[in-house]
């Protein structure tokens, strides 16, 4: 069942076209990654989905129902973890989580249980009486997440939740998102850290300039692009004709030697490395370390968007 369905969404900021006939479909139980450079329209699309921004054209359906600013029953099932930490500096960790839980759950006893659960979930048990300004950046991020997920939503939007956090906190956050998903929540995750998206998302959409450029699993995306396997062989001394022999292999697209290593860019194939090493052995080339790297999401991104990630 499609939890999120967006059809031909158009959003303009004055003359700037932020979303250009944007389409999106997210199935129940997915961790869906929205990947794109800054200004690509990730946050705008989420804000439109949540009815926090007006938009010019398009249809948005959440849980199969049209989403409106006053669709309070739908909003009750949604959790939002915004990009910037949005908590009250004056309230303690527990009070903050309780406040945001109270927006969704009115029953006091149930709220207390949910708050305790959220505190445990994000590992803030030792900080419940702390004010946010006393917390480190990573702990603040965890508090931000606790405030967004405390009411146990069915659909959670994470808008770049790991910006400016240390690797330990980042791993804790990503692990937490996977646990939430395992408990049944559908997750929409925006980021411009490709390794994160690669690590946790079941499907990924690459967007830029308000458009969806590609969408699918990581393997789908890799298959979409022509970038292939990268092979590096440490071989300082090459007998004459070796590079030519390697370059003549049908799957080799580019070859170079920098004095210490041979660099090959190959089409995707199951036996590329074995064939290359076979040629080297035939020519009695002494080689050291060998690296083989399949195409990464970064390669996909660069090929699709034609640019480096901005910012």
């Amino acid at each position: 069942m499609a939890i999120v369905e967006v059809r031909n969404l158009v959003k303009r900021y004055g003359e700037v076209l932020a979303l250009d006939h944007f389409n999106l479909q997210i199935e129940e139980g997915e961790i869906f990654g929205l990947l794109g450079p800054n200004g690509s329209g990730k946050t705008t699309s989420i804000n439109c989905l949540l009815q926090l921004l007006t938009y010019d054209k398009g249809d948005i359906l959440l849980f199969g129902e049209p989403m409106r600013p006053n669709s309070y029953d739908i909003k009750r099932r949604i959790g939002v973890v915004p990009q910037d930490v949005a908590v009250f500096d004056e309230l303690s960790v527990r009070e903050n989580i309780d406040y945001f839980c109270g927006l969704y759950v009115s029953d006091g006893a149930r709220r207390r249980a949910l708050v305790d659960e959220a505190i445990e979930f994000v590992g803030l048990r030792d900080y419940t009486k702390f004010r946010p300004r006393k917390l480190s950046g990573g702990l603040k991020r965890r508090l931000n997440i606790a405030c967004g997920i405390v009411h146990k939503p069915d659909l959670i939007f994470f808008d770049e939740p790991t910006v400016a956090v240390d690797p330990q906190s980042r791993n804790a956050i990503l692990g937490g998102i996977q646990r939430l998903n395992a408990e049944g929540a559908t997750v929409v995750y925006t980021s411009h850290y490709m390794e994160e998206v690669e690590q946790i998302c079941s499907r990924i959409m690459i967007m830029d300039r308000g458009e969806s450029l590609a969408c699918g699993t990581k393997d789908d995306l890799v298959r979409m692009v022509s970038t292939g396997e990268k092979v590096e062989v440490e071989a300082p001394d090459l007998p004459g004709g070796t590079l030519e022999a390697l370059g003549a292999l049908p799957f080799v697209r580019r070859i170079s030697h920098d004095g210490t290593s041979i660099h090959l860019l190959c089409d995707n194939g199951p036996h590329n490395l074995a064939t290359i090493l076979g040629v080297l052995q035939e020519r009695a080339v002494v080689f050291g370390r060998v690296y083989s790297e399949p195409p990464t999401l970064n390669d996909v991104f660069l090929e699709i968007t034609g640019k480096e990630l901005r910012d």
């Binding site: 309070y72 909003k75 939002v80 949005a86 009250f88 967004g148």
Partner: peptide, 18 residues
């Protein structure tokens, strides 16, 4: 102003409270 900050406003606006 505490409630008027953009992120806070959006978070509350995303909730089921009118």
């Amino acid at each position: 102003s505490r409630f008027g900050r953009e992120e806070m406003h959006r978070r509350v606006a995303a909730s089921p409270v009118p």
